[in-house]
Design a protein around this nucleic acid. Sequence first.
DNA 1: CCGGCGCGGAATAACTCGTTCCGGTGAGGA
DNA 2: TCCTCACCGGAACGAGTTATTCCGCGCCGG
Lengths: 208, 208
Amino acid sequence: MPTPQYATDYDERVVSAAREVFAQQGFAAPVSEIAELAGVGVASIYRRYPNKRELAEHVRIAATSRVIAEAESAVAAEAEPWSAFERFLRGCLRAHAGIGVVLPPYEDAEDVSEELRGLRRRMIELIEQLVTAARRAGQLRADLGSADVFLLFKHLNPPLATDEERRAELRERYLELLLPGLRGDGAPLPGSAPDWDEVYRMCVPGDS
Amino acid sequence: MPTPQYATDYDERVVSAAREVFAQQGFAAPVSEIAELAGVGVASIYRRYPNKRELAEHVRIAATSRVIAEAESAVAAEAEPWSAFERFLRGCLRAHAGIGVVLPPYEDAEDVSEELRGLRRRMIELIEQLVTAARRAGQLRADLGSADVFLLFKHLNPPLATDEERRAELRERYLELLLPGLRGDGAPLPGSAPDWDEVYRMCVPGDS
DNA sequence: CCGGCGCGGAATAACTCGTTCCGGTGAGGA
DNA sequence: TCCTCACCGGAACGAGTTATTCCGCGCCGG
């Protein structure tokens, strides 16, 4: 065997731990913490990824892919636009990987790989499709842009609860609180909807 | 003059900058960044506060006081419970100082000064009063606790937009989205409401 | 029983950040 | 005008933290 084969089980645990840790503490979080959460040694991480940045890139790719899958399955499963939209939201929330991690490039926007760039395009396209359809059907308020949805998602993530269990519970709790507003029951929204560039730009400088 | 008098103008700019920076980056943010934002040298900060921790404490005290004032003025200005509640929310949002900074103790809960502890008690008392009144009047959904409100607030803060102007706009935008849900138009909330201890506990470990 | 592939975690070298120190500057009195 | 002194900005220092590498160990297949 020319290329040594590492336990694939490890890969999964590492990426999952990295997602969790980066989501909570930002890119500045120590690699050792990721290793600890994954229950492996730091060397095992560096044996698979040349450096921290590439690990983060991998996490983002996985998370973005997950959101894409969630969107595609929601479109496929629901005929009604609003139902598809809602299913997408809940799906992402449950996937937890969620948008919180997808969002921040962690480093300067320039260093994003072509692969991730493509995935982002696809993800945006899908979300836009979901939003537009629901809006056309009069089931989603007209003054809400697709990038708004993204930001709202980010906000749904509670800080750092003790356990992930509880965090998930709170996420669903606050999503429920948001849904009536999304359907358009309130006053018109002040301000202008962000565009995607703004959303990405907003999250670059810091880590979180 | 026995005690030298420093420019009070500086104090204000320093605390305001510290609030901004801590809110965005957490307690881990470098002091130098605060100094830069305030347009002063680091020494000017240390000339007024013995160390970073005390500066943070000062920020929290100022922010908590501000929330208290906002609550008191809302209670005094509006007879209708829901109106008072809504005014409180908007007021805090506009004060921006807001809850994002009030919340995190930044360090272990033990090290909180007696003064701040007292302010917190008062703040919680007031928020609870606002929530209970609105709930009693049937204007706020019954399954929403006062600590929920606090967490929601935290979530309203957009990450790090380029300018504060835009951030404020987005905060108001998303508050609007939340209001219908708060009034009780949606499905019952899943999960259980957090209590205040949980809220504080949730935000201790990390910085943000 | 032996060889070697991974593994965990200690060791290293760089870097960041809190805090302190120091020379500069400008206002005000002589 | 010149001197003094209070105050300022920013460079310097030392402690602590972290990405990355290195090394000896244990397990698995033969």
